[in-house]
């Protein structure tokens, strides 16, 4: 089985390498992209889309179809982690640790023992991470709001400065992951559950594809945001700018949710019980 896998990898690798021979030279000024596509983007992008950041204009508008599938790939990665790792039947762990909050005494309960009632005075703690990490908790609590606002800024400001849905989404996901690391996984799952991450991840991709489909319904090509001008109440050039913002928000939602989803599955080996 391994040999077959190796052979497949070698076959496809050499096929890709063979394909690369037909590429134009690196930075060749006579290659078709340099002759036709790049000058058009550089000269016309602001007039056509009203977006000063060329990278965003190319990524979300001219090559929006490509980016839509990049978002889908990220969602598929989250889905693959779920399919491979998630353990759906509930397993009782070998032992659980509980901390009595008023006294700080730790209880160790073996498999089959009676668990403390879910009252306010006991909290479950991870078996491999026992200490009170006051410094880490307070720092993460202090940093998180700034991190989230910065993430929203990066998503919303992708038109004018470096940034966009992917980067902002990762920062937003990192804020949740930081919470899960500094407190514990169970508390994070209580706040943003597995279902929420899955639904948000697919909703983000749906926003992107739905925007494209809406353009089609309105009589333009798929992902031609100019068609949204009537709905948004602006001229077609500005509508392309706003259309990019809509899909960037979709990308941001999808990326942040999938990052958190992948973290939940990877850090607890699919059990969603005790994290890192």
């Amino acid at each position: 089985m391994r040999i077959i896998g190796l052979l497949i990898v070698i076959a496809f690798g050499s096929l890709l390498r063979y394909g690369v021979f037909f590429f134009p030279e690196w930075g060749d000024p006579a290659s078709p992209p340099s002759l036709h596509v790049s000058p058009h983007y550089i000269e016309e992008a602001i007039a056509e889309t009203a977006v000063p950041n060329l990278v965003t204009a190319v990524l979300a508008d001219y090559r929006g179809y490509d980016t839509m599938f990049e978002t889908t790939v990220i969602f598929a990665a989250g889905l693959a982690c779920f399919m491979l790792l998630r353990v759906l039947q509930r397993q009782v762990p070998e032992c659980r640790l509980y901390r009595h909050i008023p006294t700080g005494i730790t209880l160790r309960i073996e498999k089959g023992g009676k668990l403390p009632t879910e009252s306010g005075s006991f909290e479950r703690i991870d078996s491999n991470w026992v200490p009170h990490d006051l410094i880490i908790k307070s720092t993460s609590r202090f940093i998180t709001p700034f991190l989230q606002i910065f993430a929203l800024y990066v998503i919303a400001h992708g038109h004018h400065s470096p940034g966009g849905g992917f980067q902002g989404g990762v920062i937003l996901g990192a804020a949740v992951i930081m919470y899960a690391i500094s407190y514990d996984l169970r508390r994070s799952i209580q706040r943003i559950g597995e279902q929420a991450t899955a639904v948000l991840g697919s909703a983000g991709v749906l926003i992107y594809a739905g925007t494209g489909a809406l353009c089609m319904v309105l009589g333009a090509a798929f992902l031609d945001y100019g068609a949204l001008a009537g709905l948004l109440g602006v001229d077609p050039v500005m509508a392309r700018s706003h259309g990019m913002l809509i899909v960037e928000i979709g990308v941001g939602i999808a990326v942040s949710a999938v990052m958190v989803w992948i973290y939940y599955n990877l850090s607890s080996a699919g059990r969603h019980d005790e994290g890192l």
Binding site: W129, P131, D133, I135, I136, T139, S140, F142, I143, F146
Partner: peptide
């Protein structure tokens, strides 16, 4: 300011993990 807050915390967390 951000680095002043986060860098010592990160170092603290890494040391803690090493001890653990």
């Amino acid at each position: 300011v951000l680095v002043f807050i986060t860098s010592p915390t990160a170092t603290h967390a890494i040391v803690d993990a090493g001890v653990r």
